[in-house]
């Protein structure tokens, strides 16, 4: 369902349920690649400024249905895709994404939308060169999240599904469903599974060895001063035009 990478760049994504430790790993990977002299761009799920105001409002008033939730997250992704991820890949940049289409395939299907429909919606995106799936047992993830955070958020806990009145219980049930969807995608998309219960350092070693293989013979966009790329590097002309607010 996802297109082949037809660009000069490399796309690396991390996936996994909340508390799987993927963000820690991609952050380490980012710094390592930047230090090694590559042009690297980092993109985070649900971070497009344009869509944010809408999703924030809808989350506050709890007006999302599984379908609108799904489409708006894809809108956010598409905005990042069209304005930064795809043009940067074309330019020969290594793009790192903390969560990608697979997050939608797992979460939205766990919410009840049609699996084929959501896959088709994301079919404008490309299949990553590396899709790293950080797998942890449900109990471990739940403990990490509930231990580290003061309170869970409504949608994060899947409260909209009415699985349980108790937010912690709902979170666990919802994450369990998502985990199940992820596991199914390992074969479907050939995700690379990484054991998220191993020490951080050991996981990172494995991550780097996978990425090294992908980068054999790759010469992307030069980055002699080892500068990070921010959104304004890509959208400077746009910002001048008057902004979106």
């Amino acid at each position: 369902m996802l297109r082949k990478n037809d660009t000069k760049g490399k796309l690396i994504v991390v996936e996994g349920i909340d508390g799987s430790g993927k963000s820690t790993q991609i952050d380490l990977l980012y710094k390592w690649l930047l230090g090694a002299g590559y042009s690297v761009y980092f993109s985070e799920w649900n971070s497009s400024a344009l869509v944010k105001s809408t999703t924030r409002a809808a989350k506050k008033t709890k007006t999302f249905t599984p379908t609108t939730f799904s489409i708006l997250h894809c809108t956010d992704f598409a905005d990042r895709w069209e304005n930064s991820i795809y043009p940067l890949l074309k330019a020969g940049v290594i793009v790192l994404a903390d969560r990608y289409a697979f997050t939608a395939f797992a979460r939205d299907v766990a919410r009840g939308v049609d699996p084929q429909w959501v896959r088709s919606m994301y079919s404008f995106a490309i299949m990553p060169d590396a899709a790293l799936y950080f797998r942890v047992p449900l109990g471990v993830a739940v403990e990490r999240i509930t231990g580290a955070r003061a309170s869970l958020k409504y949608y994060e806990a899947g409260m909209d599904l009415g699985l349980s009145e108790n937010i912690n219980e709902s979170f666990e049930l919802f994450q369990g469903r998502i985990l199940n969807e992820y596991d199914k995608m390992v074969d479907e998309f050939g995700l690379t599974m990484i054991d998220g219960t191993k020490p951080v350092k050991e996981q990172q070693k494995r991550v780097r060895s996978i990425i090294k293989k992908i980068l054999v013979g790759f010469d992307g966009l030069p980055n002699p001063n080892r500068m990070p790329i921010s959104v304004t590097n890509i959208q400077a002309a746009k910002a001048k035009k008057g902004g979106s607010k």
Partner: peptide, 12 residues
Amino acid sequence: AAKSGHTLGPIT
């Protein structure tokens, strides 16, 4: 907002 800023790609 998007219409007035001309900032959206076609898929978005």
